[in-house]
Design a protein around this nucleic acid. Structure first.
Lengths: 339, 339
DNA sequence: CTGTTAGCGCCTTCAA
DNA sequence: TTGAAGGCGCTAACAG
């Protein structure tokens, strides 16, 4: 790897002059500058990251921490899109992205604690934490306590923390309005107990605005990563819904997984989707394109969320702002044939 | 961040002694060692990566390059599992993973060329290239030419290159044998023209071994990322298959996407899965758990492939071996209800 | 057993 | 306009 020294030797100039020429700072004669530029290009000069980091006792690495393990968990597909968004924005400003995977199933295990130590031990310029809940907030506090600027990607405003949140409330709210415009009047929400607060809030808000009747179906929550199990739960739920005295004419499901199971279940018991009941999913996962009928779903703008989080973090690194920001990104309805 | 200097000051020793104590190399009195260790722990000392990199003019970063863009492409879900495998193995040896995304739709665009320059400009200790085909092989050659050890994760042995390959041939071969054991005799393969060579080879091999009749359905290849389009193609294909004079009693599909469409299509035209026709998919994507019936599929051991690739690369970095290695990882049948 | 010296590549400060 | 010196944190070689 060519260094300033190599260029200096060839150009018969001091290292320093070369450095100044390359950075375009300070006085350099046109002559010298031209020579330096030419030789640098010839040699394919690239500044040495390690040296720069050392010199400024700061590095250009942004840690990104996300909850995903080796066993396929529900996060991966959506996570990846966030990574790509983050990466793009960081690259544009000369920062690197360092990915870290937190084993969510064993959040308090030594391995995870070690992970956090590793991360802060590397002294990243900043950290982006992807996830919602106490665990992630505690990581945020931990990093900030060590002077490492942090940003959360979450699903709701987190008081006193910088975050980009994907606005699930608005997403569900829009979905309800969309269904109402399509003439649906008995719009239900199907979810799990305890884990879909902001979705439910959006649902309630819209139902109230429209002066409709609230219809909520809840299954005992299942948080594992066994997809077949979720499917079976959903199919069972569809029988419940189909058998209700006043059957809803639309259901917004907690997730695409659940929605896919509902669609399959309704088919099994002869309830026509979308004619008799419309189904809307959540997240726009791949599988939403493979149900029949195709699943209308509330899509996460993951790429954008990633970009915004990176943007916010870079700002925070440059000028440490005083007060916490929360930026919402809106979810968009991806319309297919289930509505 | 505490440095050796800080520890030295507190311990009233020279920086060097501290360094030796911490690394456990060279002579240090028990007394000194104890003191150093204690203070280091107190201060939460972590060696500075940048300084180490600079000192050894070598870094501990492994670049990982994968074909994925901001628009959801078919790779993400499987890719993520590979990343996790790579990451785990590298962490265990003190290496970092640096992810890079190659925009496959614009392989020759300046942005991609810049990406390659960036990567080699950072002088990674090694590189893992995930992908199959000329593009990836050229990246391999490029990096090796710059003395950067490279390893490919591919789907076949690549002559004269180090690679971990996911053995699609074996995967399909096993699937055919499995179907035969279940009593199926008219086993077909459904794919796209030109892009499923090693799968087809596996199919042919097994069919020959079993002395069965080869039945291949091919659609004009569609390589885009529009999932609805793939689904429609697959549904159309299922009508073809269902309408054949001698209808097969089993189909192995090129992908889970295709298989999911086939299952839906067969249902539409009243052909019972698995009773009248068994369907096997490829990759074990999430959606395979959400078809009805659930899709039996040939699963990629992505995590393992990632781990092995990292392992191979680390070996290559330490002792640059003379001759190219190819390690195959076997695919496993994930059995659900479609067979 | 311990300390000193030098240098990895870069940049800032100061002197020429 | 240019060059020399010093130091970021670390380690290897050498001297005490």
């Amino acid at each position: 790897m060519a260094s300033l020294k190599d260029i200096a030797k060839r150009a018969e100039l001091s290292i320093n002059t070369v450095s100044r020429a390359l950075r375009g700072s300070g006085y350099v004669s046109e002559d010298a500058r031209g020579k330096v530029m030419r030789i640098a290009a010839e040699l394919g000069y690239r500044p040495n990251r390690a040296a720069r980091s050392l010199r400024f006792s700061k590095n250009y690495e942004i840690a990104v921490i996300s909850f995903i393990g080796e066993n396929r968990s529900s996060g991966d597909q959506l996570m990846m899109e966030k990574f790509v968004g983050i990466k793009r924005r960081l690259s544009a400003s000369g920062y690197e992205m360092h990915l870290h995977f937190l084993d969510i199933d064993n959040a308090c295990e030594p391995a995870n604690l070690k992970l956090l130590e590793d991360i802060s031990g590397q002294n990243p310029a900043g950290i982006i934490i992807i996830g919602d809940g106490e665990l992630y907030e505690s990581i945020y506090r931990l990093m900030e306590a060590k002077q490492t600027p942090a940003v959360l990607i979450s699903y709701d405003v987190i008081p006193e923390m910088d975050c980009v949140y994907i606005d699930r409330l608005q997403g569900v709210q829009d979905a309800v309005h969309y269904l109402a415009e399509k003439g649906r009047r008995k719009i239900a929400f199907a979810g799990f107990s305890g884990i879909c607060c902001n979705r439910i809030r959006g649902y309630r808000k819209a139902i109230k605005e429209l002066k409709l009747q609230e219809i909520i179906f809840r299954e005992r929550s299942y948080l594992g990563s066994d997809l077949e199990r979720i499917f079976d739960l959903a199919v069972a739920m569809s029988k419940n819904i189909a058998g209700t005295k006043i059957r809803p004419d639309a259901v917004i499901a907690y997730s695409d997984y659940l929605a896919a199971g509902l669609v399959a279940g309704f088919r099994e018991c002869g309830v026509k989707v979308p004619e008799e009941i419309a189904v809307i999913g959540f997240d726009n996962r791949e599988l939403a394109a493979f149900t029949s009928p195709g699943l209308t779903t509330i899509a996460q703008p993951n790429f954008k969320a990633g970009e915004l989080a990176a943007e916010m973090l870079l700002n925070k690194i440059i000028k440490s702002s005083e007060q916490a920001n929360a930026v919402g990104v809106t979810m968009n309805l991806k319309i297919r044939s289930s509505t």
